[in-house]
Amino acid sequence: MHLLVIDWWLILEKSLLIFGIIGLSFFIAMYTTYAERKVAAWLQDRRGPNRAGPFGIFQPLADGGKLFFKEEIIPLASNKPLFILGPALAMITALLTSTVIPWATPFITKGGDVIAMQVADVDMGILLVFSIVSVGVYGIMIGGWASNNKFSLMAAIRGASQMVSYELPMGLALIAVLFMTGSLKMSEIVGNQIENGWHIIYQPLGFIIFFVCALAECNRTPFDLPEAENELNFGYHQEYSSMKLGFYLFAEYINMFISSAVMATLYFGGYDIPFVNEASWGLNSFWMTVISFSVLMAKISFFLFVFLWIRWTIPRFRYDQLMNLGWKKLIPLALLNMIITAAVILLLKK
C-alpha cells in the first residue's frame, strides 16, 4: 500500500483559483451593497453614504463590522440545526455557481503549461449552474421554515415557488443558445462567440427572457416578493440577526454577481474583447489574461448596475402578476424563441 498519487501542482493551482474567486465574490458582493446605496441615492437625487472614508468607500466594512458585533439571536421556538443550516446553504450554493465560469483567457507559463482561468471546465458546464441554482431554493425554504414564523414561512414558500417557476423559462431561453453552440461547456460557449459574434446579436429575445428570469432567481426587484417588507414584515430572514442575516444578504449579492457573470458569458462573449482581434496584438499571455479578465469584470459591472438601476425604477410585482408573467408570458415566448432558433439553424444547414 503506497500513498495516493496526486498531482499537487494541479491542486495548488485550483485551490489558488478557488480562493481567488471566493475572495473576489466577497469583495464584489461587499461593494455591490455600497453601489446599491450609492446608485439608489443618485437615482433619487441624493448623495448616498459618504461618511466612512472618502466618498464613503469604507461603508461596506462598517456594515460588515456592525453585522459581526450584533447580538446573535436564535428564537426559542425555532428548529435550531435547520435555523443554522439555512444561511449556510444559501451561502454555499451562491459560491458554488462560480466553478464553471471561465474568468479569462488561459494563462501560459514560461514552461509552456496552460493554466485555465476556470475552476472546472466540466462536460455539463451550464447544466451544473442550473443544478446548483435549483438547490439554492433550500437555503430560503429551510431558513424560512426553521424560523417558526408564519411570515417567514409565507415568504419562503413564495420564494421557492417563484424560483422553481422561473427556472423553466430560463432553461428554455438557454436551450436556444445551446442550439447555436452545440455544447454545454462554458469554454466552448465563449469560443463560439469569439468566432461567430456574441449571442446577444442572434438571441435578443432569449437574452431578455434570461435576464428577467435571472432577476427572479436572485429575488431582486421587481420580483423580490420573498422579502416584501410591507406585506411580510421582512421576508424569510425576518428572525435572523447578526452574521446569519449577513449571510443571507451577502448570498443575494453574490448571486447577483454570479448571474451577471453567467449572462456575460452566455450572451456577451465572456472575456472576449469586442470589436478587436486581440490575437493580433502579440501581447504575452499574462497581460492577455489580465486584460480579458478586466473586460469580463467590466461586463459584469455593467450588469450589476442594470440590476440596481432596475431595482430603483420598477415597483414590486403582485404575486399573481409574477406567476402570470412567468407561466403565461415568458414560457410561451421562450418556446417560440427556441423553435425559431431551431428552424433557422436547420434552414442554414441545408
Partner: peptide
Amino acid sequence: FLESIYLWNIMKGMAITISHLFRKKATIN
C-alpha cells in the same frame, strides 16, 4: 400581449430614472 409583458413601459421608466443620475443632487452634506 405586448403591453402585458411591460417591456416598453419598463424602458420608459428606466429612461426617467437614469436621467436623474446626471442631475444636480437635491441634498447637501
